[in-house]
């Protein structure tokens, strides 16, 4: 029997690493990977709770998180292709077109 708390701490660690990646990295694709990492951390928490509570609700949430992650990856990478075609870079410091 794995303690649920340990699973949740693993989830928190992965989420914090993902947050730092989003804040620290300047490459848009790596930022995107960090977002995927955060989604994975949430999945770990869901599965951990489902394991501890003998419930399937968390598993269903994991499935829908997976759908959202897949759509987000597809649309986000398409946006990055379009941006790279227009600006020639993926450094997020240089995307300031919407800054006022």
């Amino acid at each position: 029997m794995i303690p649920v708390t340990h699973v949740l701490v693993l989830s928190a660690a992965l989420f914090a690493i993902g947050v730092s990646g989003v804040i620290l990295r300047r490459n848009a694709i790596v930022v995107f990977m960090s977002v995927e990492l955060m989604l994975n951390a949430v999945n770990v928490a869901f599965v951990g709770f489902a394991y501890g509570l003998n419930s399937m609700t968390g598993i269903m949430f994991v499935l829908f998180v997976l759908v959202v992650a897949a759509t987000e990856a597809v649309v986000g990478l398409a946006i990055m292709l379009a941006i790279f075609r227009n600006r020639g870079t993926l450094n997020i410091d240089e995307f300031n077109l919407l800054r006022w």
Partner: peptide, 30 residues
């Protein structure tokens, strides 16, 4: 940003490991 990430980590770990964080009633899928 790093400080905020560390705060998020500390808060999450604090909530998950606090004594008041107990699981609810068990579901029907053991």
């Amino acid at each position: 940003g790093i400080a905020m990430a560390l705060v998020i980590l500390a808060q999450l770990v604090g909530v998950f490991t606090s004594a008041s964080a107990t699981l609810g009633p068990a579901g029907e899928y053991p």
